[in-house]
């Protein structure tokens, strides 16, 4: 019997073409967005723009600068990281090392984390205002400041705390995955040598999981640098004459500034270049912060591989 001649498989061809097309359209969208920002924002880039303030004219492309916003964004992100890492890592340790995966409590905690990740960011903003600013801040003022207003108002520290709550699920999930990836054999080896569970976690498991924890921090920073809604009511300011010098000060922020520029400008044509410039700075800053995280993670991995010290 002669072999049948090869037939064109239209179904496979069509499917391959469709997947390729979809992928290409996503790449195209990213290229268009980034290209547009880079193209239009590049013209605005100058040392004066990056290191200048807004005193001379907030909406005037020839005079405006974004340094206070860069400062505020970096301060916010740093403070947020300081807040979110301990809470996230300790929660992840509880979930991966102590909690019984089948118990009702564990399921409730996991449900809470998943729901936290699904809450719209504006809700975090309102929560931050109600809980951190009014309740926590207000209480601090009542107890420690004799009723004077210091912490019971929007402030850098409350914005960072709110942002930390928002990014908590990301950190917990990344840290827990990293902890679980540490081989059981290492834990057993440690326990068999007479180490307690706590010693095993601190000396063996956590150091091994550190790169994964940093991955979580990187994701959180990326998210925290760009979110606007959570800080609108909790600490970001429309305009400030001075850089924040205290945790209870308000701050300016790149993301919030983009919102301000695009909704409050009296002359949108003259403001447009600043808008593009600010967005480009925000993207570059996020990239820079992420790169710093990636470098730190790389160092830790390299050190773990060489195992000096």
């Amino acid at each position: 019997m002669p072999l049948r001649r090869k037939q064109t498989d239209w179904q496979s061809l069509g499917f391959t073409a469709a997947t390729g097309l979809m992928t290409a359209s996503i790449v195209a969208m990213v290229v268009i967005i980034l290209g547009n920002i880079a193209w239009n924002g590049a013209a605005q880039m100058s040392l004066r723009f990056i290191f200048g303030g807004t005193k001379e004219g907030m909406f005037d492309a020839a005079q405006a600068g974004v340094f206070p916003m860069i400062f505020g964004t970096v301060a916010l992100v740093m403070l947020m990281t300081i807040c979110v890492l301990p809470v996230g890592v300790i929660t992840a340790i509880y979930l991966s090392e102590y909690a019984r995966s089948t118990s009702a409590v564990t399921r409730v905690i996991r449900g809470a984390i998943n729901n936290l990740a699904g809450v719209p960011s504006i809700v975090f903003g309102l929560f931050g205002l109600g809980f951190f600013v009014q309740f926590v801040g207000g209480s601090i003022d009542k107890v420690f400041c004799g009723g004077q207003l210091h912490y019971g108002k929007p402030a850098l520290v409350w914005a960072a705390a709110t942002m930390a709550v928002l990014t908590l699920p990301v950190v917990i999930v990344a840290a827990e995955e990293a902890l679980r990836a540490v081989p059981k054999g290492l834990r057993e080896a440690s326990m068999a040598l007479g180490a307690t569970k706590l010693e095993t976690i601190l000396k063996i498991v956590l150091p091994q999981a550190l790169p994964g924890v940093i991955t979580g921090a990187i994701l959180a920073v990326g998210r925290g640098a760009g979110e606007v809604a959570p800080i609108m009511f909790t600490g970001a300011a429309y305009y400030l004459a001075h850089l924040p010098s205290h945790l209870s000060d308000q701050f300016m922020n790149l993301g919030y500034h983009v919102f301000v520029l695009s909704t409050q400008s009296p002359d949108i044509e003259r403001t447009k270049p600043i808008l593009f410039g600010t967005v480009l700075v925000l993207l570059l800053l996020t990239f820079l912060l992420n790169s710093a995280g990636v470098i730190v993670r790389g160092r830790i991995r390299a050190r773990a591989r060489q195992a000096h010290g």
């Binding site: 290492l186 080896a189 010290g309």
Partner: peptide, 29 residues
């Protein structure tokens, strides 16, 4: 567990230096 040591099926040295591996149990004590 200090009095009854254990060697496992799959060798499981800690991702530390050779010295630190042997010193681990001693440092714990």
């Amino acid at each position: 567990r200090k009095r009854v040591g254990m060697v496992f099926q799959k060798s499981n040295p800690f991702p530390k230096s050779i010295f630190d591996n042997v010193a681990y149990g001693l440092r714990i004590q």
